[in-house]
Amino acid sequence: MSLGAGIFLFAVGAILAFAVNISVDWVNLQVVGYILMVAGIVGIILGIVLIARKRTAVSTTASGVDPVSGDRVRRTVRTEDQI
């Protein structure tokens, strides 16, 4: 879930919990609003955590000539660092 989806869920939940005065027999809209607000908060927290743990990748390439066979040798090393 992205950060925007969490904010959207929270906003829809707040509207259902506090602004809608419709009574439906088979569902309590106020409880549904509170559930959506909690889901939105969880989504916002997950979005922030996923944004904070972005990784950077560094590629290092070294090339040379093999002294035995005379072939060109190319070596690539990729390392991932966390910020």
Rank of each mutant, 00 (worst) to 15 (best):
M1C: 11
M1L: 14
S2D: 13
S2M: 08
S2V: 10
G4D: 05
G4Y: 05
G6P: 01
G6Y: 10
G6N: 02
I7D: 09
I7V: 12
F8S: 10
F8H: 04
L9D: 09
F10M: 08
F10E: 08
A11F: 12
V12R: 06
V12D: 01
V12A: 05
G13T: 11
A14K: 14
I15E: 05
F18M: 13
F18C: 13
A19V: 00
A19S: 07
A19Y: 01
V20A: 09
V20T: 00
S23T: 10
S23G: 04
V24W: 06
D25P: 15
D25R: 14
W26N: 09
W26A: 14
N28I: 06
Q30Y: 11
V31H: 12
V31G: 06
V32A: 09
V32P: 07
G33E: 03
G33I: 00
G33K: 09
G33P: 00
Y34F: 11
Y34N: 12
L36K: 11
L36Q: 00
M37C: 06
V38R: 06
A39N: 03
V42M: 05
I44Q: 02
I44L: 03
I45C: 09
I45L: 05
L46C: 03
G47Q: 01
I48T: 03
V49K: 12
L50I: 03
R53W: 03
R53E: 02
K54W: 02
K54H: 13
A57T: 15
S59E: 14
T60P: 04
T60G: 07
T61Q: 08
A62C: 05
A62V: 14
G64V: 08
V65F: 14
D66R: 01
D66C: 13
D66E: 13
D66L: 08
V68R: 09
G70E: 04
G70W: 00
R72W: 05
R72H: 06
V73T: 01
V73P: 07
R74T: 15
R74G: 08
R75S: 15
T76C: 04
V77K: 11
V77M: 04
V77H: 05
R78P: 02
R78A: 06
T79Y: 12
E80Y: 12
Q82P: 14
I83P: 15
